[in-house]
Structure formats: structure tokens, C-alpha cells
């Protein structure tokens, strides 16, 4: 197991959210959408300009910008 920032994850890579350091409004939004420690995610792909990123979480697709993914740390195998 190895903890990396979500931005560094490549397409198709999966992992478990370990820590979310965002606070305030962004933190609230990230949590409300289910990005909390313990959630399993998989990188689904990037927009044509490499930003934002689309991830699979629970049963839906969530998008977030790279600078928002910077607040999320994921345990990957």
C-alpha cells in the first residue's frame, strides 16, 4: 500500500481514499459527494486538456479539477 495524491493517479488506477485535506466549501462539497476516507475510487479518464478528471465512485461518475484533486490522498496498491 502506498499513499499518493489523486492528481498523480493514472487512468484506470483504483484505490481507497485515505485523507481529504480540503476545508470550507470545497471540503463540504467533496464530502457530500461521497469522497470520504474509506471510499473506493477509480480514475475513469481526463478531459481532452488533461483537466478536469473523471472518477468512478460508488455507482456514479464524479468530476473534479486537478487542483481540487490535490486535496485528496489515496491508498493505491
Amino acid at each position: 500500500m502506498n499513499r499518493i495524491c489523486m492528481r498523480q493517479m493514472s487512468k484506470g488506477q483504483a484505490g481507497q481514499v485515505a485523507r481529504v485535506t480540503a476545508s470550507g466549501e470545497l471540503g463540504r462539497r467533496i464530502r457530500d459527494m461521497g469522497l470520504v476516507p474509506g471510499a473506493t475510487i477509480q480514475i475513469q479518464g481526463h478531459a481532452p486538456l488533461r483537466d478536469p478528471v473523471a472518477i468512478k465512485i460508488m455507482d456514479f461518475t464524479l468530476t473534479l479539477r486537478n487542483n481540487e484533486a490535490d486535496f485528496i490522498f489515496v491508498e493505491v496498491t
Binding site: 462539497r29 467533496i30 459527494m33 469522497l35 461518475t61 464524479l62 468530476t63 473534479l64 481540487e68
Partner: peptide, 9 residues
Amino acid sequence: APFVMELPP
């Protein structure tokens, strides 16, 4: 504003 959004199926 954040772009933390759902891509609906």
C-alpha cells in the same frame, strides 16, 4: 467555484 460534479449517465 469547484467543479466537483456528477456526470449523469
